[in-house]
């Protein structure tokens, strides 16, 4: 099977890769580009561990074909925070101990950023429903929701 040459932008950086038509964006990120911050928990859009944005819209990388990235702007966890600083959301996740094993955390950080861009002042219920597609088996969500609401308040305060 011939590989396809794809030109895209990932976290603002022009990127090219070769992929087979059946590969998902998740396969491409993890296996071809070695961007393993995006995690795979189910491969069927049920867990949210591979949450990314495509042209700013939140989705699961396992539900997107790699070839579809052509000409799009892809956002992943690697684009949030810098080499020595964290985003407010990331800081709040640490401050509130909103992670235990941490496998769901990159997806939750990406999703929370999407939530707060869309709704800077979510209620607890709004946050819970928006993030319902991000499964966490460790925390019971309590500290995650606290971190999200605190991040929202902090970001509103800073704005």
């Amino acid at each position: 099977m011939a590989k396809l040459h794809i030109t895209t932008s990932i976290n603002g950086e022009a990127t090219e890769f070769l992929c087979e038509p059946h590969e998902t964006l998740l396969d491409v990120l993890r296996n071809d580009l070695q961007m393993t911050g995006t995690k795979e928990g189910c491969g069927s859009g049920d867990c949210g561990a591979c949450s990314v944005t495509v042209d700013g819209r939140l989705t699961c990388a396992c539900l997107v074909l790699g070839v579809e990235a052509a000409g799009r702007e892809i956002g992943t966890i690697e684009g949030i925070g810098g080499s020595d600083k964290l985003s407010v959301i990331q800081e709040k996740f640490l401050e509130h101990a909103a992670l235990q094993c941490g496998i769901c955390t990159p997806g939750l950080v990406v999703s929370t950023q999407a939530l707060l861009e869309q709704n800077p002042n979510p209620t607890e219920a709004e946050a819970r429903y928006f993030l319902a597609g991000n499964l966490c088996r460790c925390t019971g969500y309590d500290k995650i929701i606290r971190a999200v609401l605190d991040a929202a308040a902090t970001m509103r305060g800073a704005a």
């Binding site: 949210g48 495509v54 939140l58 699961c60 997107v64 999703s111 939530l115 928006f130 993030l131 597609g133």
Partner: peptide, 9 residues
């Protein structure tokens, strides 16, 4: 339909 992520597609 599905999660926020699924609704994105």
């Amino acid at each position: 339909i599905g999660s926020t992520q699924v609704q994105g597609r």
